[in-house]
């Protein structure tokens, strides 16, 4: 089932066309990688999908509802979770509290002045942390976590609102090589069991060709190839512009 449909997405700033007429779709349970050189438009694409930027033209729909023109916080409520290239967690809170924060937001109790926060949705937060393998560290302050573990916490936060679409911006950047495969395998497992459409950008080609169901290649704001990893890998233009000769 198709979850995300992107049609004719166009964005330019400062006279530079960051994206021109990009169209693609992602289905439920599917893991799709976006690759391309720096400046190809990957991050712009993500920022458009999650509402941090507004497109000049084109449409983005999730389960038939348009996401264009909405603020990131509203897009989140419609079922889009996101992890950031440089991890963004609440450093002054524990791992559990980070997930609780997302749950409190989901239940729209953000401004409650008297309820004791530490007791709110603690069990549900722990269940989410167990799914990403972070339950043992639930009470630790986020500020003390290893980088790879922070990425897992971000994943748990993104899952709190039962997303339909998960955006992961360079999920393995900054991690040691042994952690990388484990993280992407985890994301893949979650996508399959919960029926989440996952879109991620990545520079590590082993990760891309080893785990993605499909690969999109951006170059200078245009989509130059789409398809299964084994097809994209041998595509002549992709080799010329990005991968280099094998």
């Amino acid at each position: 089932m198709t979850a995300l449909v992107v049609q004719g997405l166009t964005k330019s700033y400062g006279g530079v066309q960051a994206l021109r007429g990009v169209s693609f779709s992602v289905s439920t349970g599917e893991l799709v990688a976006i690759i391309g050189p720096n400046g190809a438009g990957k991050t712009t694409c993500f920022n458009l999908l999650n509402g941090q930027l507004a497109p000049d033209a084109g449409d983005i729909t999730l389960d038939g509802r348009s996401l264009v023109g909405r603020a990131p916080r509203d897009i989140w409520r419609l079922g889009v979770g996101r992890t950031f290239q440089i991890t963004a967690t609440f450093g002054s809170m524990s791992v559990r509290e980070n997930v609780q924060m997302a749950l409190v937001s989901r239940e729209r109790r953000l401004y409650a002045p008297f309820a004791a926060f530490p007791r709110l949705y603690a069990a549900e937060a722990d269940a989410l942390l167990e799914r990403v393998g972070m339950l043992e560290q639930a009470a630790r302050p986020c500020a003390l976590l290893a980088y790879g573990d922070l990425k897992r916490v971000e994943l748990a936060i993104a899952l709190a609102n039962r997303p339909r679409l998960l955006l992961m911006d360079e999920p393995t950047a900054g991690m040691a090589s042994e952690e990388r495969g484990a993280l992407i395998a985890l994301a893949r497992a979650l996508a399959k069991t919960d029926g989440i459409a996952v879109l991620f950008t990545e520079h590590d080609m082993e990760i891309v060709f080893g785990h993605a169901d499909r690969v999109l290649v951006l170059h200078a704001g245009e989509l130059i190839a789409v398809g299964a990893p084994e097809v994209v890998r041998v595509d002549a233009r992709v080799q010329e512009l990005y991968l280099g000769a094998p």
């Binding site: 440089i86 991890t87 290893a146 980088y147 922070l150 950047a173 900054g174 991690m175 040691a176």
Partner: peptide, 10 residues
């Protein structure tokens, strides 16, 4: 080296 706790060089 790295940025914050993200390690880039080993």
């Amino acid at each position: 080296a790295g940025y914050g706790r993200a390690r880039v060089l080993f």
